[in-house]
Design a protein around this nucleic acid. Structure first.
Lengths: 197, 197
DNA sequence: TAAATACGTTCTCTATTTGTTCTCTGCATT
DNA sequence: AATGCAGAGAACAAATAGAGAACGTATTTA
């Protein structure tokens, strides 16, 4: 069980490493969490080690390493995706734990609610992790909402006449062409999570 | 574990080689990272050699070579996985580009060569990214080699009598129990890559 | 080909940074 | 009164960063 100061320490370390690519020194942590004594910070670090959240390499500077599995984060679960029924937004602030490599700014997850994409290796119950993006490039895999109703994961392609072709990902299903106004691109596909039942 | 100065040195070397096609001299590195002593640079170079990031050919000028696998976004493709045919090692140093979040120390990829795990959502052609690990925990998803022949992706469980049960990942297939000596755990499952065809 | 220079390498020396350990002081809760 | 947390700050050994000299071998130049 972490104290508040220890949590602040951990968060600072995580942000620092994410930003700089290397770990902070004890002194940097101290100024970062607004404390003057390095000794105090060192105590917090020891607590984090005891909790298994970080590891230290002895006799090195900037020797803190994060234990990834422990500090896994959450992203919001915002909707249910389905090829043949209505897209449904989930509003109850549900979140899911994801592996650290799927974490990213503003990312969210959508739950697949039918087997409509089974041929493409996407099963009912899978969670699609997406990232909202301003400009979609050709060949991007996107989660698109058709007429505000049916959500699908397809490959995006902008045609010369400004219509959009949605291609199936892997299988030999037919591509479909849509007018731009019929589509809402919810986000770019980042990864797939298959939860244990 | 690299210090900041060592990281700067490595980055300079990488950029220099990318730009010029040949390695920098010690003096060029020195001015590049803004220090005056060649001896100091040489220490940093030795550290990079110790980390396996670069190699030196003795008695030559501009004698630094980058070890690619270590410093790029590639991981080696080391084998072909199959449920009903022989496991096959790939030895030709092939590498694959992977998303940054799949990169990790010593990780490697195995190609799935049949549809034996289709029920579990793993298709022929998928690449399984794995990480070798010393101690496997119960419930870990592992790539296991049975009798040195058949490779499978299963969930690991150590029984009280020291046998090992391999559980299917998601579907309702039967679990199988093995004596420890029949199994070789190639690595822990990290992620799945489905390449476009 | 011989001399001059460039280069990698080894060594010593100095200064600063950094992790770590200790002790001491408030302060709140029990 | 006792305990535990938060914090300050001193002290120390080791790690890190850097300068610079010296030397033998490559490479280039005259």
């Amino acid at each position: 069980m972490l104290t508040i100061a220890q949590q602040k320490t951990l968060q600072f370390i995580q942000r620092f490493i994410k930003k700089n690519g290397y770990a902070p020194t004890v002194a940097e942590i101290a100024t970062g969490i607004d404390i003057k004594s390095r000794g105090v910070v060192h105590r917090y670090i020891q607590a984090l080690v005891a909790e298994g959240l970080i590891e230290l390499t002895p006799n090195h500077h900037r020797n803190i390493r994060l234990i990834e599995e422990k500090s896994s984060k959450k992203i919001p679960l915002t909707g249910q995706l389905s090829d043949n029924s209505l897209f449904e937004k989930i509003s109850n602030n549900q979140t899911i734990d994801v592996m650290p490599w799927l974490i990213g700014e503003n990312r969210f997850a959508l739950k697949v609610e039918d087997d409509g994409m089974l041929e493409e290796g996407i099963m009912r119950g899978d969670l699609l992790v997406c990232e909202p993006r301003d400009k979609i490039k050709d060949e991007d895999m996107v989660v698109a909402l058709i007429d505000g109703k049916n959500g699908v994961l397809k490959r995006y392609q902008l045609n010369k006449d400004q219509t959009i072709t949605l291609l199936p990902l892997y299988s030999r299903l037919r591509p479909t062409v849509y007018e731009q106004h019929r589509l809402e691109i919810l986000g770019v596909y980042v990864g797939l999570i298959r939860l244990e039942k």
